[in-house]
């Protein structure tokens, strides 16, 4: 019997106590402070946590290979993910002219989801985001593919440092990389079109594109590529028999992720767009969000924008998890 592989009784009991106390606290806050109908939401979450605590005590002395800390972690993660989403949905479904004060979307009206398409600034911003993020993504992927290949395969000196630089760029404030490009565009009087915003946006797109493409190339079966070459495959055949079945889907997925990542950046669009037309959707939503009357449109637009990402994540969930690492 491998005792070490099972969580200890003490660990399970500690997790159970923490889960129960959290649930108990939520139930009290829900009953005393939170107005209805949100009380029921708080109570539901509290019951889940308290039941986890009770079940934890019951299974603490069994050989079940389950970590109660992990269960508690998943429950809290779900809570922290669903609560903001519910808040956005609740805001988007409020009737025009009224204000939502509860988390529960009662008396929901769905008109905002249609109105948002008629709202000029939002529609323009969506188009701008599509254009800017789309162009930046295409350029970034065209640069990232050979760059990642070089980082992976070539004996280039200091290639590890290049890779570290790309990954470090991911966590840099986007202003640091994007502002000089935007300043150059303004100085050269080239920042007149919406597409010009794609240049500073590359600062957001390129690092993530390189990082994800390196991950794809690292997972690729290069021995099979060598075998295809050794078999005498022409360049076209290598593309057809290796690149398409083994790289195309992952690179396509990376392209989609880079697009979403790039289009979600709010800082560049808000700070560097010279005109309103050049503002991307997040920047426009940021500006509209200041007006309480527009908050339902902002929320609806956000949910529309989220929809394709949810679809991609649902359809390619296994591949995404594998690509981004477990």
């Amino acid at each position: 019997m491998n005792v070490a592989s099972h969580p200890s009784i003490r660990s399970r009991l500690a997790a159970s106590v923490v889960a129960f106390l959290l649930g108990f606290a939520m139930a009290n806050v829900g009953l005393i402070v939170v107005p209805r109908p949100d009380t029921w939401l708080w109570l539901a979450a509290a019951i889940v946590l308290m039941v986890t605590g009770v079940v934890g005590v019951l299974v603490a002395d069994t050989r079940r290979d389950v970590s109660l800390w992990a269960v508690l972690g998943v429950e809290l993660l779900t809570l922290f993910t669903l609560a903001p989403l519910l808040w956005v949905l609740s805001t988007a479904t409020v009737a025009e002219g009224s204000r939502r004060t509860t988390l529960w979307p009662g008396d929901a009206t769905w008109s905002a989801f249609g109105e948002v398409w008629d709202a000029g600034p939002v529609r323009t911003a969506m188009g701008t985001s599509l254009l800017v993020a789309g162009l930046a993504t295409v350029v970034a992927m065209l640069v990232a593919a050979p760059a990642a290949h070089a980082l992976m395969h070539r004996d280039a000196p200091g290639r590890r440092w290049w890779y570290v630089a790309f990954v470090a760029a991911l966590v840099l404030p986007t202003f640091v990389l994007g502002a000089p490009a935007a300043a150059q565009l303004l100085a050269l009087d080239l920042a007149t079109s919406r597409l010009a915003m794609a240049v500073p946006t590359l600062a957001v797109a390129l690092p993530i594109a390189v990082w994800l493409t390196v991950r794809v190339l690292r997972r690729a079966p290069w021995s099979l590529y060598d075998a295809v070459r050794a078999d005498g495959a022409s360049v076209g055949q290598r593309l057809r028999h290796f690149a398409v079945p083994h790289l195309a889907l992952d690179l396509g997925l990376v392209t989609i992720l880079v697009f979403f990542w790039t289009s979600a950046d709010v800082a560049l669009g808000a700070a560097m767009a010279p005109t309103d037309d050049q503002r991307t959707l997040p920047a426009t939503l940021l500006a509209l969000g200041a007006d309480p009357e527009s908050s339902r449109l902002v929320a609806a637009a956000g949910l529309w924008w989220l929809l394709p990402l949810v679809l991609v994540a649902t359809v390619f969930s296994r591949r995404l998890v594998s690509l981004l690492g477990r």
């Binding site: 079966p221 021995s223 099979l224 075998a227 050794a230 078999d231 005498g232």
Partner: peptide, 12 residues
């Protein structure tokens, strides 16, 4: 025009 078998099989 040499045919090579790979140590890790390299199967499709």
């Amino acid at each position: 025009d040499l045919s090579m078998m790979f140590q890790d099989y390299a199967l499709h």
